[in-house]
Amino acid sequence: MQFADGRWVVSDYDDVRAVLADPVTFLPDNALTAVTPVAPAALRSLVRARFSLPPTLANNGSASHAGLRRLVASFFTPSRVAAAEPRIRSLVLERLGGSDLVRDLAWDLPAIVLMELLGLENVDIPTLKRWSSGSLEFFWGNISRERQLELVDDVGDFHQWLVKRYHARDGELFCALADAGVSAEDSAGLCYFLLIAGQETTTQLLSTALRRALSDRALWARLPSAGVAESFVEDVLRTDTPVVTWRRLTAREVVLSGVRVPAGAELVLLLSGKENDPRHLAFGYGRHFCLGAGLARLEAAVTLRTVAEHEPSLRLVGDEPEWLNLLSFRAPRSVTVVR
C-alpha cells in the first residue's frame, strides 16, 4: 500500500481481489470519474450536450446492476463469441501487409467486431474511434484545461449520437435496452462506456501482444501451433495488461495490508500479476468482471496466430514507440515492422 497524489495504491493480489469482490465496502462509484477535474468551460459544454454517466455497469453498485449486466451479457455468450472467429480471421487477413500493425490492423478491427456482435449497423468506424480514444484521454488522462476543451465536443457528440440511436431503435442493442424499459439516459450512459471499453482495450491488447511477440523470434515462429497463441495472450494479460489499474472508493474505514485507510478514500488497484505468479486480474473480478473477456482473448489469439502464420518473416524496426499512458490504460501507439 502506498499513498500518492491523493490516492491509495493497492498492489497486493489478494487485497485487490478482495476489494473487487466487495462492492459494498469498496464502491465502484468513481470508476468512470474524470481523473483530472473537469474545468468549468468543459463542464458547460457537457451540460449543453446533456451528457451524463448514471450508474449502469462499471460504476454501478446498486441493485439495478445485475439486470443491466444480464442484458448486455446476452450479446457476449460463449456461442456468439465463438461464432465470431471466422470473421475475426477474415478481418486480420484483409489487414496484412501494412508497415504499422497498430494503424493498419489493431486500430479498427476490434471496433468492427464489436459493432457486429452488438447488431449496430452503419457505424462510421473512424468517427467512433475518434470519439472513443478522445473519451479515454478526457476521463483517464492527466490533461490540461486546454486539452479538455479540445476533446469535450467529441465527448458530447458521442453521447448525443447514442441517445439518437436509442430513440430511433437503431440496432439490436438499443432495441433490447428499450424493450427492457431502460431509459434513454441510462442506455446512453451504458453504451458510452461499453462502446469504448469493448474495443479500445482490445486495440491496446492487440498492440501490446504483437509488439511483445515480435520481440521474441522463437515465439513468433511457434505462434501458429495449436494453443501457443492462447497461452501467450494469457501471459501478456498477466504481466503486461493494457488495463493497468481500476478505481474504487472506501465506504468505511478499512485495513489493507496492515494499513488503515479512511472512509471516502480513493483506491487505485493494480491489476497486473507478477512474473512468478500465474494469477492476474486483468479483467477484474466479481460482479464487475469484464463482459468482453472471452471476446478479447479470442481476438488476440486469432490475430497473433493469423499474422504469424502468414507473415513469418515480420520483424520490428525503429525506435521505441510513443505509448498511450493514462491512469488505467497503457499500450504502444505504433508497432512498426518490415518483412
Rank of each mutant, 00 (worst) to 15 (best):
R222T: 14
R287M: 07
L162C: 07
F193Q: 15
L304I: 03
V243E: 03
A188Q: 10
I143N: 02
N122W: 12
S313M: 01
E94W: 00
V16R: 08
A82N: 09
L109R: 03
R165I: 02
Q199I: 13
A111H: 03
A111R: 01
V255K: 13
S334P: 01
L53Q: 07
D124H: 06
P321E: 01
L271R: 12
A331I: 06
A226N: 13
W107E: 05
T77F: 08
W161T: 00
A34N: 08
I112A: 02
P55T: 07
E230A: 14
S90G: 05
S79K: 15
W246T: 14
G198M: 08
R211F: 14
H167G: 05
L71D: 02
R279D: 08
R330Y: 12
D153L: 05
A63R: 12
N59R: 09
G189Y: 13
P332H: 08
R89V: 13
S62D: 05
L327G: 00
E311C: 06
G156N: 06
R87F: 08
D277K: 13
L46N: 07
D15S: 13
E200S: 14
E266D: 12
H159N: 06
N60D: 11
R248P: 05
F76E: 08
S328G: 09
R217Y: 14
A18C: 10
A168Q: 08
R211C: 12
T127W: 13
S74W: 04
A263T: 06
L91H: 03
S64P: 01
A58S: 14
L326P: 00
A178M: 07
G318I: 06
C290Q: 06
V16Y: 12
E230F: 09
L136T: 12
P86V: 07
S183E: 13
L71Q: 03
A209N: 13
A209W: 15
S45P: 01
S313V: 01
L237R: 04
A63G: 07
L194T: 04
Q160M: 06
T56Y: 11
E275R: 15
L219E: 14
P312N: 00
L46K: 09
P224S: 11
E299R: 00
F75E: 02
F289H: 13
A178L: 10
F289N: 05
S132W: 00
S79A: 12
E322D: 04
L136H: 05
T239M: 11
